[in-house]
């Protein structure tokens, strides 16, 4: 489907590096943006920036998305602020220290809550609305880490894997209503989330590259996107390694 200028766009986790790059693409296309995030000052920085770039008003809403009890009010406010949303994007997420999670259920729960439960909760509220209006897109940023559990980050991987399964079901359910659900599986992206990693190899993508892939795939209404493209092949191999071998690997 062609991108029509002037669409209503809602971005959860709008202060994420990838979300910022994506929002600029929508601003350049003349779309109306509503940004949701937890840091008021940073949201204001983005509102100003996108406003100058697009020459249009950009809206924001401050909310800690881990507070699931607040979701019904949040979604109501969004509905009041923007009556014609064509795409909802979900970018928020946290990458924990795996070893810390192994010692702390609280830390493990935080990851599952932010990366999976909060999105499942928002989608539950939003899906009932969009199923009444066709042509809507729900674009959710998961990760290649959700394709198979590995000792080095299986808590994060689980949160994304659970999300993938939820999205498969939701896509199946909403398809007949003409509503599009897209699972985005990025590989390594050079963002604040991965600030501590050494980034000297070719596998690292820029947030701009990933955002541009997401933007295009969402317009084409793809079900699933590996970005950059080569991750699709890497993950194909990883998913197909027999478990008796996989469990012995140091991954």
């Amino acid at each position: 489907m062609e991108h029509k200028s002037g669409e209503g766009i809602v971005v959860f986790g709008a202060t994420s590096a990838v979300a910022q790059a994506l929002a600029r693409l929508h601003a350049a296309a003349g779309d109306s943006l509503l940004l949701v995030g937890r840091n008021e000052q940073r949201l204001q920085d983005l509102v100003n920036d996108l406003g100058v770039r697009s020459g249009q008003d950009v809206q924001s809403l401050q909310a800690d998305l881990a507070h699931i009890d607040g979701h019904p009010d949040l979604v109501n406010t969004i509905n009041e602020r923007m009556d014609n949303v064509s795409k909802y994007y979900f970018f928020h997420g946290i990458l924990p220290d795996q070893q810390h999670c192994e010692r702390s259920w609280a830390a493990t729960f935080d990851v599952l809550n932010t990366n999976f439960l909060s999105i499942a909760s928002l989608l539950t509220l939003i899906a009932n609305r969009v199923s009444e209006e066709s042509n809507r897109s729900l674009v959710i940023v998961s990760s290649v880490a959700g394709d198979r559990g590995r000792q080095s980050n299986y808590v994060y991987g689980t949160s994304k894997g659970a999300l993938n399964t939820f999205l498969e079901g939701l896509r199946n359910r909403l398809h007949k209503h003409g509503c599009h659900v897209m699972t985005v599986k990025p590989g390594f992206i050079d963002t604040p989330m991965t600030a501590a990693f050494s980034k000297q190899n070719f596998m690292w993508a820029t947030p701009e590259k990933v955002a541009s892939d997401i933007y295009k795939a969402a317009n084409k209404r793809k079900d699933q996107l590996y970005t950059p493209w080569f991750w699709r092949y890497i993950m194909f191999v990883i998913r197909h390694l027999p478990e008796p071998i996989f469990k012995r690997l140091d991954l």
Partner: peptide, 9 residues
């Protein structure tokens, strides 16, 4: 280079 936002015009 990540401080690349406009503030007002």
């Amino acid at each position: 280079r990540q401080l690349n936002r406009f503030i007002a015009f």
